[in-house]
Nucleic acid binder design. Structure first.
Length: 698
DNA sequence: CAGGGTCTAT
DNA sequence: ATAGACC
């Protein structure tokens, strides 16, 4: 989620104030790189892309779960940092990725909620994607709190039905334009896009109770850049004539989505620091360092050009679980941690229903030097029988079979017997194989009719095939959905409605119906597609819940309150259940949280600067005694280092770990032009029927 | 930096 | 099969 990378983010002030300048580097229509016979000019077709970014996502989720947190400064804590915080906390100086100690210093009243378990965030995240998908199938997720939506087709359809295309305006802000001075009639598609964006934001708010920002532009890069212009809960449109402005105002290349740390450093080595530097740098020179394709892509990004398609995200390609810690150096601890991670992961895998073919174990060793990246991993195929247990057998059963497997991989990396110091362990299932109906003709839309009953967990002995069987009662409904989807099918054809119209699990059927109905309606009447098509009968509130209050709750919450599971155990955990409304509960929760805050307050301080100092390391570690340093290490310099750093360096060397690779430049490396263009699409579409579980967790 | 993910290059 | 790089 808030993975922006520290700096980024929150610098709305940055280009918000750049109403000047504008070298008008307006690449409005990229000249078709007529390299071949295809004459299409991607950017000239003017797509309308939306980018949605939820406001302080984790904090919002926690405030929904416990409304009492709404009015207090709230910080979501993962280990010893505040990954995000609500706006009350921001007013008091707390920022994202601030250490807990700094945050408490700035705001002593800060209430902290642990956010290491991502379950609730993951679930809510998929609900958001689902809402967006109910309007348009072309939705691509980016992390847990961002989504791109290609609404080009929807815009065209609406425009075609609009009688007076001249009488409407932009919804929300228009980048670099003061209020309503922008003439929507000159940008009908973007204007229409802004209305759709507003509708979708409203849908997300009314159905899930979440607020967020949206950006409207002609490509993903621009949509993402512009969406954060006006921060909490607002939206902004970027007109083609302002592309130069928005790009030119970025404070550095790092601010360009797609340019990470490494890339930025390599560019810097070439003397490129600002976006403008890159805009005017000769592509040929750039190619020498990055290779043709990458060079062109980088330069395009600097110019605000981005042809990449909005690729519908399907069900995840892998499921992983990890935990980081300050120090782990015994095999026993490792086994226990792996056991813990595995049982949780196996549970998720079980819910998913697909059978993983590959297992991977990743570790991060403590390193005094370049701490950040540097993870090592080993993977191996999962014996079919084991994979079976994960899905059908008892989770505990499968986990016990996987632990030995994990340990085997572990020993491939860590030469046990020698000391080691790990700071993270990750377990991951990938190569997820769908059982159930095979997607026959790749992408053939017909595959959507082939589903029958629960595609997973059920028997199905012959793992393969199993298509065209029955077309149950829902057949016609699905059929209509398909036609609706296909009508708005984008270039990538087949991929389009992946995920949609699949699974028919009883549990989820309800949801799909909604989507289908929506899609169909969409084709008949734009207006009806706005917000209220779900008839979650607002009938009556559950006993002991004020009907008035009930009506005001977001749809999702109402559903939960009405669900049988909810009324079942009235007690439950204070934190892990649906939101409570009773004042008693709120108070309890509040004080409980505060108590934990206090506890952590003192503990946190140790954790922070204590780090390597407090622990009087067990000295059983390799004595620095001798010489075997890597050749490039000056013994003099080495001896000046703090003892613990010396120790760790020695450890690293002994584990023959290449610690610091020269961040040198790389060789071009022939860029193969075109490749397996659809691998992505194919793979994903094959899993479409599983996507559903992510949208509506049991 | 936390906990997830995705994709690409070797 | 692994390491990166990015979000």
């Amino acid at each position: 989620m808030d993975n922006s990378d520290g700096e980024m983010e929150e610098d709305e002030s940055e280009w918000k104030a750049c109403f000047v300048d504008s070298a008008a580097v307006c690449p409005s229509t990229s000249v078709a790189a007529t390299s071949g016979s295809i004459i299409k000019t991607p950017e000239s077709v003017h797509r309308v892309i939306l980018h949605f970014d939820l406001d302080c996502f984790y904090a919002q989720v926690e405030m929904i779960r416990n409304p009492a947190l709404r009015d207090v400064p709230l910080g979501i804590q993962q280990k010893y940092i505040i990954v995000t915080c609500n706006y009350v906390a921001r007013e008091r100086g707390v920022t994202k990725l601030m250490s807990v100690t700094d945050a408490k210093e700035k705001c002593p009243e800060l209430v902290l909620v642990k956010g290491e378990d991502l379950t609730h965030y993951r679930e809510m995240s998929y609900k958001v994607t689902e809402v967006l998908m109910s309007y348009c199938p072309l939705v691509e997720r980016l992390g847990f709190d961002e989504n791109f939506v290609d609404v080009t087709e929807m815009v065209e359809q609406r425009l075609a039905r609009t009688s007076e295309p001249n009488s409407f305006s932009f919804k929300g802000h228009v980048f670099n334009h003061l209020s309503a001075d922008a003439k929507a009639s000159r940008h009908p598609r973007l204007a229409m896009g802004s209305h759709i964006a507003a509708e979708l934001r409203e849908a997300i708010h009314s159905k899930l109770g979440l607020t967020g920002c949206a950006g409207v532009a002609t490509n993903k890069l621009l949509a993402k850049l512009v969406s954060g212009t006006f921060k909490p809960n607002q939206q902004t449109v970027l007109l083609q004539e302002n592309i130069g402005d928005i790009m030119g105002c970025l404070s550095g290349l790092r601010k360009v989505p797609g340019v990470g740390h490494q890339t930025a450093r390599r560019l810097q080595a070439l003397g490129l620091v600002s976006v403008k530097d890159l805009q005017v740098y000769p592509v040929n020179d750039l190619s020498r360092e990055f290779g043709g394709p990458t060079a062109q892509r980088l330069k395009n990004l600097a110019l605000g050009i981005d042809e990449s398609a909005v690729t519908p995200t399907g069900a995840p390609q892998s499921l992983s679980d990890e935990d980081s810690f300050k120090k782990m150096c015994s095999v026993k601890e490792v086994v226990e941690k792996i056991q813990e991670l595995l049982s949780s992961l196996v549970g998720r895998m079980h819910t998913d229903g697909r059978q993983p073919q590959t297992f991977r174990l990743t570790i991060r060793r403590y390193s005094a030097t370049n701490k950040w990246f540097s993870r090592e991993s080993r993977q191996c195929p999962i014996p079919g029988s084991v994979g079976q247990k994960i899905i059908s057998g008892s989770p505990e059963d499968a986990a016990s079979l996987l632990v030995p497997l994990a340990m085997k991989l572990f020993h491939k990396m860590v030469e046990c017997g020698a000391a080691f110091h790990l700071t993270l362990i990750n377990v991951c299932f990938s190569n997820l194989q769908s059982r159930g109906p095979a997607v026959s003709g790749k992408g053939a839309i017909t595959s959507f009719f082939t589903q029958s009953a629960s595609p997973r967990k059920s028997q199905i002995s012959s793992s393969q095939n199993r298509d065209s069987s029955t077309q149950n009662a829902d057949g016609c409904l699905l059929g209509r959905q398909v036609s609706a989807c296909s009508r708005i099918a984008p270039p990538k054809g087949q991929v389009t409605s992946k995920g949609a119209c699949s699974s028919e699990e009883p549990l989820h059927g309800f949801k799909w119906e909604q989507s289908c109905v929506c899609a169909v309606e969409e084709n008949h009447d734009e207006a009806s597609c706005s917000t209220e098509r779900i008839d979650l009968d607002e009938s009556r509130a559950p006993p002991n819940v004020d009907p008035e209050v009930f009506k005001l709750l977001p749809e999702e919450i109402r559903k939960e309150l009405l669900s049988p599971a909810y009324s079942k155990s009235p007690s439950g955990q204070s934190a892990s259940e649906a939101p409570r409304m009773s004042e008693n509960e709120l108070r309890e929760n509040d004080s409980a949280t505060k108590a934990s805050v206090k506890r952590r307050r003192s503990a946190g301080i140790n954790a922070i600067d204590g780090g390597d100092v407090t622990e009087q390391e067990e000295l059983s570690l390799p004595r620095s005694s001798d010489s075997d340093f890597p050749g490039n290490v000056d013994p003099e310099v080495f001896s000046e280092l703090p003892p613990d750093v010396q120790k760790d360096l020695l450890l690293e060397w002994k584990q023959q770990k290449p610690v610091l690779k020269a961040p040198s430049s790389r060789k071009p490396g022939k860029g193969s032009a075109a490749k397996g263009r659809d691998r992505k699409a194919e793979g994903r579409s094959g899993q479409s029927n599983n996507l559903f579980k992510y949208f509506k967790p049991a």
